[in-house]
Design a protein around this nucleic acid. Structure first.
Ligand SMILES: [Zn+2]
Ligand SMILES: [Zn+2]
Ligand SMILES: [Zn+2]
Ligand SMILES: [Zn+2]
Lengths: 152, 152
DNA sequence: ATTTAAAAGAGAGTTATTCTCAATAAGCTT
DNA sequence: AAGCTTATTGAGAATAACTCTCTTTTAAAT
């Protein structure tokens, strides 16, 4: 499992292995995710705003391309939460957690569970796959929504 | 956990509890999913084609509305596989499985693991949530893609 | 049979994401 | 240090999954 700490240098090395390049944009985006509070995830749009606020004008195209690239490298986790767009967060053991989502109000609780990663490790090894990330997603109805009579 | 076997009658009863109705369309769509081979999932478009082939002209609007409704009732599982659209499958204990996805070629392997459901049960109970479904999704690189030099 | 509101159908509308292509620049070569 | 090759960026158009709107139909209660 990757899930190691990436520096600009290790990112550069891994990119160069495949004939790719380290650009200032990629370095800045990695930096953003590494300094994000634990349990915080960003959509592409949110990342764009945050970058803008910090004085970095990176185009949306590049942002979409970069988070996809980093997810496929195992540097970021691509999360399908309740909303209609993806979220990204850094993929590191001490951040590793899972999501309990209310299907009615979309409230999301994060939780940790060590055996999930073990199952992911075992399963991918058994099939000869190289593990990048594993996520347990629980769909449920939260206490408040159970009490409400509102539709669905 | 719901995950029980639904008949037209039990679906009707559960819909009526909330002031909703059992329509022929809903009955037919439930039937399709219950007779699908184990481990088979359908996108909205695929479901539409299949219905058409069997002589049922149900509109895409209704299909989208129905699968969403049934997922929120816990009858169907909503899966985020590798492609850019959702898949649905029946939510029943003897079908319950998880997905190992190659992020490069999108090949997907299904696997069973009993402890995942236990973790989902325990976690949702602890938070007072009513469990509908839990899915372990593993992102990884398959053996063939590990060997290939192709990009990403 | 009548009534009421939920649901279906048709098609327009929305929006997250990808694609295209010209311009730029990373990093290798000399 | 300058030049070269080609990966990458930026801007905006294109795509497509999904939702919304509104009229018509119909489930099911009375
Ligand atoms: Zn999270
Ligand atoms: Zn809720
Ligand atoms: Zn499946
Ligand atoms: Zn593969």
């Amino acid at each position: 499992m990757s899930m190691s700490f990436y520096t600009a240098d290790s990112l550069k090395a891994e990119l160069h292995e495949r004939g790719w390049r380290l650009t200032p944009q990629r370095e800045i985006i990695l930096d953003i995710f590494q300094n994000l509070a634990a349990g915080k995830h960003l959509s592409a749009e949110e990342l764009c705003e945050l970058l803008h606020k910090e004085g970095h004008d990176i185009s949306l195209s590049t942002i979409y391309r970069t988070v996809k690239l980093m997810a496929r490298m195992g540097i970021l986790r691509e999360l399908e939460l309740a909303e209609d767009h993806k979220h990204y967060e850094i993929n590191q053991p001490h951040h590793h957690h899972h999501h309990l989502i209310c299907v009615r109000c979309n409230q999301t609780i994060e939780f940790k569970n060590d055996s999930v990663l073990k199952i992911g490790d075992k399963t991918s090894k058994k099939e000869g796959y190289h593990l990048l990330d594993c996520q347990l997603t629980i769909h449920a109805v939260c206490p408040a929504c159970q009490r409400s009579i509102l539709p669905v």
